[in-house]
């Protein structure tokens, strides 16, 4: 579905690379999670897929077509994008924000309206209380959910998601993650998702790709990544969630003994 071939991006004519020689393939219906430190090039890689960033070298295929030969406007309307900074339009209501792409695609107003309500339900917002609010009348988590609804609105087959659940409380996050995973599986969505949350990565991903300083360190299923990390950096990265899980487990066990 998405093939990234030797993609590199430099903002300073080759003195440094935000992304360097990345080869990565995402299959149809696959949910790939991009992991890595802040500034390692995850957002840049994501933006190259829908041409918000043009690669300095290499090429990218989406549905077997070289994106550099595709009209970027049409390309982007067919790919849902959840922005790292959410990026809701402050002058539009929630409903208008969600309906942006359907309107660009000239959907009937009634179809837009129904779709908005459907997506607000899906993302755990109440159409009645929230649809006519402006973004500045929402909480950070609510805004993030509207951003997700907006990306899903025109039923894209590919979703690019840059830390989509970052501002949510753990319970809402868990619910929405599961809701999204179910949706992704029923609709057979192809997803590239960036996150800093290891647990999220392990729970949601079909496959995890780890980046460091613009370079792809390796990919693997959550199980492979946990069990046999292909690189010491990946092992180190996985050390934290593993240790935390162990601690939680032992606390649960000792708490049980105390009773």
């Amino acid at each position: 579905m998405i093939q990234i071939q030797q993609a590199s991006k430099t903002y300073d004519r080759g003195r440094s690379f935000a992304v360097q020689g990345v080869d990565l393939e995402v299959g149809a219906g696959e949910l790939l999670v991009l992991l890595g430190d802040s500034g390692c090039g995850k957002t840049t890689l994501l933006k190259m897929i829908n041409r918000l960033v043009e690669p300095s070298r290499g090429r990218i295929l989406v549905e077997d077509r070289d994106v550099s030969r595709v009209n970027p406007v049409a390309l982007r309307r067919g790919i849902g994008y959840v922005f790292q900074g959410v990026g809701l339009f402050p002058h539009m209501t929630v409903a208008e924000n969600v309906a942006v792409v359907p309107r660009l695609l000239n959907w009937e107003p009634a179809a837009c309206r129904d779709r908005v309500d459907e997506l607000l339900h899906l993302t755990g917002l109440s159409p009645r209380t929230h649809r006519d609010r402006k973004p500045d009348e929402l909480s950070g988590g609510q805004r993030q959910r509207v951003g997700l609804a907006r990306a899903l609105a025109a039923r894209p087959r590919i979703m690019l998601m840059d830390e989509p659940f970052g501002a949510l409380d753990p319970i809402t996050r868990d619910g929405l993650q599961r809701e999204f995973k179910r949706l992704q599986q029923t609709l057979n969505l192809t997803v590239v998702m960036v996150t800093h949350d290891m647990t999220e990565a392990l729970l949601l991903a079909d496959r995890i790709a780890v980046m460091k300083q613009g370079v792809l360190m390796g990919t693997g299923t959550p199980r492979q990544i946990l069990r046999n990390p292909s690189h010491p950096y990946i092992a180190a990265l996985m050390e934290t969630p593993r240790r935390q899980a162990d601690q939680v487990e032992s606390m649960l066990r000792s708490g049980g003994e105390g009773q």
Binding site: L52, G78, F89
Partner: peptide, 13 residues
């Protein structure tokens, strides 16, 4: 700029 990028990223001309 992030709002402009969102507009562009959603496929506005």
């Amino acid at each position: 700029p992030d709002i402009l990028e969102a507009a562009e990223g959603l496929g506005m001309t």
